[in-house]
Design a protein around this nucleic acid. Structure first.
Length: 601
RNA sequence: GGGGGUGUGGUGCAGCGGUUUAGCAUACUGCCCUGUCAAGGCAGAGAUCGCGGGUUCGAAUCCCGUCACUCCCGCCA
């Protein structure tokens, strides 16, 4: 080894020891005859001192050294002279007096600062990702992620799970996203699909009798990117046999809790056990199936009261079966006149963006006797207002936002307003993790374009046993066994109990517009497997990137992925994707069709 | 596919009600300095203002297009 110790681990107990260190120049402070260098490695920073008189050769190297030069130093640890300790540094009580110094490698001036926390344009960071990753903040994120994965492995191993790898080159999976295709050279004209998840394979592992499987699995989905979505991402994929919904929920809740308590030690777990919301409740109260419950801001149904009011919009909407809901925003009713109208106008813009036609409001005065502000107050009688305020538990100084529209639009507006208000007023504590379960999802969602039912998760999700009859009578009402683990507004895990009987599976296919012929073509191996003694089974898949992001307090998952892609799916550093060599294409039997200049619509 | 934001010395920002020598900080280069720690002092170099076009006597600034990064909708669990 070129070092005997790590820079970040030198402490008072090493006083007097001869050490050899190696690392990068974080900062250099040249006093002339005396040069201080903060030497950095993955474990931290330690100050080294180079004295012209006692170590002239080392001093010469040190005076030429610049940021990010790689140095090896030999010297003695000593407690810093009285009054020169640096409480900011973990190693700040000591320093290393250098006797020899070796330049292991010089560095060009870096394109951005490694040694300071400053926002850098993302293109630049991606172009020099290896330097970006050198920044302590990024190294910390990588450590967090490593600990998450390591903890998961140990935890599940202790519970008898086996980690089993599944192929990357496989076949289209029933997840419903666009597949990445890989051409086959050995069978020209045919393609593999990269797995959107190991869904089929883990179910087959259950058929194979492994009973408890997990994998830290790379998954691929060719869809547009978001801050929380990359074309390739990592799942903790898990499947168990002989379980019911409750077993999976308990086990995963245990894992999540242990993870927070052992890894995300600077975060506060808001609830233990996790509260459970039905899908219907989540949508009605928060307009989202992954609500951020660090703050309340729920939508109260006031359809009955508003329908009796004199406000024509509410009356006609109510008669048309559209709900009226109120979000109560404390404190915002206090602002007055112009400012209030401005705020209301901004919120109305948001509502319109979410598909709404407008947004009514009432601002409640601080004094009991004061007048309700806002254009719709006059359409409610005193009794109606009293009933309304009781319904939403209104307090003096509240701003009440009224949402009324088609149910789906009410959901969208509710979600948008909640997120906006919370962000605007810092209602979401970044140090809190609000884990919840969302359960009782509908088994199918109606696809209006294709005029058919679509599995809300995937086609292997089992219906709730008590809803089996609904498959024949009213499939839209049937609930699935699906469960989602949601934290701070992100879906961090989702799964279900699977269908393990062929008869039930064959009943589902026609409902989702899947013919038996086509199903056999795509999933014949699954259907056949299910005929050889399939145990009841179920599982879940966690978004490891999202979880690590939440634990790291990062604003997006790119911060916890060493080499992520940009929004156009590019790797700016390596210039991927790139044009293939003609020879490669020929070998694969592929011809590239040049995109035509805005031809058809 | 659609909507929003950003793009100015290496980096982070200002300038955008049209005329500036394109400003500041830091990094960088040289010199001084033996207890600094975001070291300090002095001097200096460094920018076709993302790119293309247009309006104008005059464009970093206004208009159109385009590219890149990013946020959101669609898409995706």
């Amino acid at each position: 080894m070129l070092k005997t110790h790590h820079c970040g681990e030198i402490r008072v107990e090493h006083d007097g020891q001869a050490v050899t260190l190696a690392g990068w120049v974080n900062r250099r402070r040249d006093q002339g005859g005396l040069i201080f260098i903060d030497l950095r490695d993955r474990w931290g920073i330690v100050q080294i001192v180079v004295d012209l008189e006692t170590a002239p050769d080392a001093h010469h190297i040190a005076s030429d050294a610049r940021s990010e030069y790689v140095l090896q130093v030999h010297g003695n640890v000593r407690i810093r002279p009285e009054g020169t300790a640096n409480p900011e540094l973990e190693t700040g009580d000591v320093e290393v007096v250098v006797s020899e110094m070796k330049l292991l490698n010089a560095s060009k001036t870096p394109p951005f600062y490694i040694n300071r926390d400053e926002s850098i344009e993302e293109v630049r960071r991606m172009q020099y990702r290896y330097l970006d990753l050198r920044r302590p903040a990024m190294q910390k994120n990588m450590v967090t992620r490593h600990r998450v994965v390591k903890f998961i492995r140990d935890y599940l191993d202790n519970l008898g799970f086996l980690e089993i790898e599944t192929p990357i080159l496989f076949k289209t999976t029933p997840e419903g996203a666009r597949d990445f295709l890989v051409p086959s050279r050995l069978q020209k004209g045919k393609f593999y699909a990269l797995p959107q998840s190991p869904q089929q394979l883990k179910q087959l592992l259950m058929v194979a009798g492994y009973e408890r499987y997990f994998q830290i699995a790379r998954c691929f989905r060719d869809e547009d990117l978001r801050g929380e979505r990359q074309p390739e991402f990592t799942q903790l994929d898990l499947e168990m046999s002989f379980v019911e919904r409750e077993d999976i929920i308990q086990l995963n809740e245990g894992l999540a809790t242990a993870l927070v308590e052992n890894i995300a030690t600077d975060k506060k777990l808001l609830w233990k056990p996790f509260p459970r919301l039905t899908y219907a409740e989540a949508m009605e109260k928060y307009g989202s199936d992954k609500p951020d419950l660090r703050y309340d801001l729920q939508a109260h149904d006031v359809t009955d009261i508003a329908g009796k009011s004199g406000f024509a919009v509410f009356v006609s909407n109510t008669q048309a079966g559209k709900p009226v809901k109120v979000i109560r925003m404390p404190g915002m009713g206090e602002i007055s006149g112009t400012a209030l109208r401005k705020v209301a106008a901004d919120l109305e813009t948001l509502a319109r963006e979410a598909g709404g036609k407008g947004l009514a409001y009432m601002a409640l005065p601080l004094e009991e006797t004061g007048e309700v502000k806002g254009p719709i107050g006059k359409f409610f009688t005193v009794e109606q207002k009293v009933e309304l305020f009781e319904r939403v538990d209104a307090q003096p100084g509240d701003l009440l936002l009224f949402i009324s529209d088609e149910r789906e639009i009410v959901y969208a507006i509710t979600d948008k307003l909640r997120r906006h208000l919370a962000a605007e007023h810092n209602l979401a504590d970044p140090n809190v993790l609000a884990f919840i379960w969302v359960i009782d999802f509908p088994l199918f969602l109606w696809d209006d374009e294709l005029k058919r039912w679509d599995p809300s998760q995937h086609m292997f999700t089992a219906p709730m046993p008590e809803d089996l009859g609904l498959l024949d009578t009213d499939p839209g009402k049937a609930r699935g066994t699906q469960y989602d683990m949601v934290c701070n507004g992100y879906e961090v895990a989702g799964g279900s109990i699977r269908i393990h009987e062929r008869e039930l599976q064959e009943k589902i296919f026609p409902l989702i517009g899947q013919t038996m012929e086509h199903a056999k073509e795509q999933f014949g191996h699954m259907l056949e497997a299910f005929e050889y003694g399939t145990p009841p089974h179920g599982g879940i898949a966690w978004g490891v990137d999202r979880l690590s992001m939440l634990f790291a307090g990062a604003p997006n998952i790119r911060e916890v992925i060493a080499f992520p892609k940009t929004q156009t799916g590019a790797d700016i550093m390596a210039h991927a994707p790139s044009v293939a060599e003609p020879g490669q294409l020929e070998e694969l039997g592929i011809t590239v069709v040049e995109p035509e200049e805005d031809e058809d619509e």
